[in-house]
Write a protein that binds this DNA or RNA. Sequence first.
DNA 1: AACCAATATGTCATCGATGACATATCAGCA
DNA 2: TGCTGATATGTCATCGATGACATATTGGTT
Lengths: 355, 355
Amino acid sequence: MQKAASLKDVARLAGVSTATVTRVLHNNGYVGEETRARVTSALKETGYQLNVVAQSLRKQQTRTLGHLLNTITRNPFFAEVALGLEEQALRHGCNVFIYNVQASAERERLGVETFIRRRTDGIVFTSPVDPANVELAAKAGIPVVQVDWLARADRNAVLVDNEVGAVEAMEHLFALGHRRIGFIGADPARFRHSADARPSVAEQRLSAYRKSLAGMGIAADEALVQIRPYYYSLDERDAAEGHAGMRELLALHQRPTAVFATCDILAAGALQAVHDAGLRVPDDISVIGFDDTYAARLSPPLTTVALPMREIGERAADLVFRHMPAPSDAATDADIVTLPSRLAIRASTAAPGSP
Amino acid sequence: MQKAASLKDVARLAGVSTATVTRVLHNNGYVGEETRARVTSALKETGYQLNVVAQSLRKQQTRTLGHLLNTITRNPFFAEVALGLEEQALRHGCNVFIYNVQASAERERLGVETFIRRRTDGIVFTSPVDPANVELAAKAGIPVVQVDWLARADRNAVLVDNEVGAVEAMEHLFALGHRRIGFIGADPARFRHSADARPSVAEQRLSAYRKSLAGMGIAADEALVQIRPYYYSLDERDAAEGHAGMRELLALHQRPTAVFATCDILAAGALQAVHDAGLRVPDDISVIGFDDTYAARLSPPLTTVALPMREIGERAADLVFRHMPAPSDAATDADIVTLPSRLAIRASTAAPGSP
DNA sequence: AACCAATATGTCATCGATGACATATCAGCA
DNA sequence: TGCTGATATGTCATCGATGACATATTGGTT
């Protein structure tokens, strides 16, 4: 179609200046009754749509957020985060650029540079790959928010307390009467960014498992701890790891009565292993997962530590906006929001040795 | 941080005009050896990053795509499409605005208007809600591509041949020896946009089921057809529908030896129902799904009609770019790409009555 | 010597919206 | 009458990058 009408076109048609059209558009300043009518009808006639690009240039504000998404890890989790972020941004009149980073620090850097060039009003890192990229964005004066993990405490972040969530899961099992509890989780070392970095999600969940046992005065039994190589590729590979982990646990001369898996996919694989062994969940063994991705909601609905994924995205957007007007590079006033998880008790857990 | 450096700043620092800096930046036109060096170092010193907003205004091209995403329906499917679209757009130097529409025609319209105002170079509708919104975008002269469904044949689209996929699934079951085959699917009427609209995905799959049976000379038995109310809410509700559908089928005095479910979530619920009935898949009954979302890859890996989700997104991007330079409103040269599905044979299907 | 092409660099209008500022009209009031 | 403030509208520089165009300066060619 022909190029869109500009303010000037509308002004010409209405026989006024562009300033008057702007005033009508934004409903500010003085405009005469009759003039307003003429402009309004000219707007309608031309099908005028504001050119946001020009507006952004002039206002030095794009009403745009950049979302760097580490797609490889924890896909469905992050899709929900992205949705929450987008919805909340929309409520603030902003649109979101999405950029999938595929676990590559290099791609992440390219993404940051892209967003700097596009002058996004903020950048959200969902599961940042390399903290240096976060600094890069911050140095450009763009408000930055991290989701799911952060390296430095002086940066904005929306987190979940994995320790509390894991402890609650364990306490649920304790309350049911379980004392011999297995663990299936990812290798924490694989996701360690640097020696001095804060503990990874995998580390947090594992250490909460250990602390919970200790808190109950239960002796640690490393045979019950299945650390598996893969993590959140989310296809059959991961399920297979959960499966293999459970197989090992079931093969112990004294097998656990319950298993805590650190993500739903691992748990799903574990369920299958139980089934394959001719045993039943939760009658013979209880299984608890983490995240509450909808993988948890199929087949036998999984008891799991549910994370408020949508809300995480929303809070991330809020943080960006709170830091937008005066982008603080001042290392002091970082906002760190920690959202609670919620134990979703479903059909995969029960008291040990029940019918 | 201080505002970013502009071309003018760089030019001043290097002691040249802005035109020269542009030439160095884009490596075109003549620039002296020594001047180039001075400009290059000035660029480095200022940490200059091109202002894409200004560039877009000047070039009348934003290198931006808008992606309208019908999140409610078929979530994981569309997340993959979005990823493919984003990746391909990136290869063309474009970034993607994402806009979740939540099955609301009104929100979809707002999305289109947003993209028009942002002057995106193209718009992709993944599962359009209201064809009128597609027309709205097209009328604004923006290249439009539809994914997964289209109302008018004179528009660009990337589709999957659901009929062929469903027929292949049925033929797989026939080849295994099944003759009594149940169907669990969504209610086609729920997704009918208008009386004269092209058949919905649900309709296509159901009619392929019927045609396949007829082609084999098998009499239709409506007791075997379970039309369920929900579709792709993708949580336990949908799984529950698959579960209920399978329960009905198992309760028949002569139960089917195989069941074709029109999406993996329904199939997952169906699997659970088989399990709950004390039967085994595939020994007692075969189950086949559709889509190959990773729901299909858990528990007992599901035989399913796999859709090339990532590639669908990539082809959608390609279509946008093919139609970008001369946005054709001419109703004639629409590109409709139909991608093949692939039958992924896994553990949920076998010959009837096998051990 | 005159001229041409290649090389090198600067000037400036333009994309479209915005808002500070200037200008103009009019009613009400001292 | 002259002044003030409210109302109404126009002018224009600006945001930053771009590229058409103009202007120099070369080193060769006839």
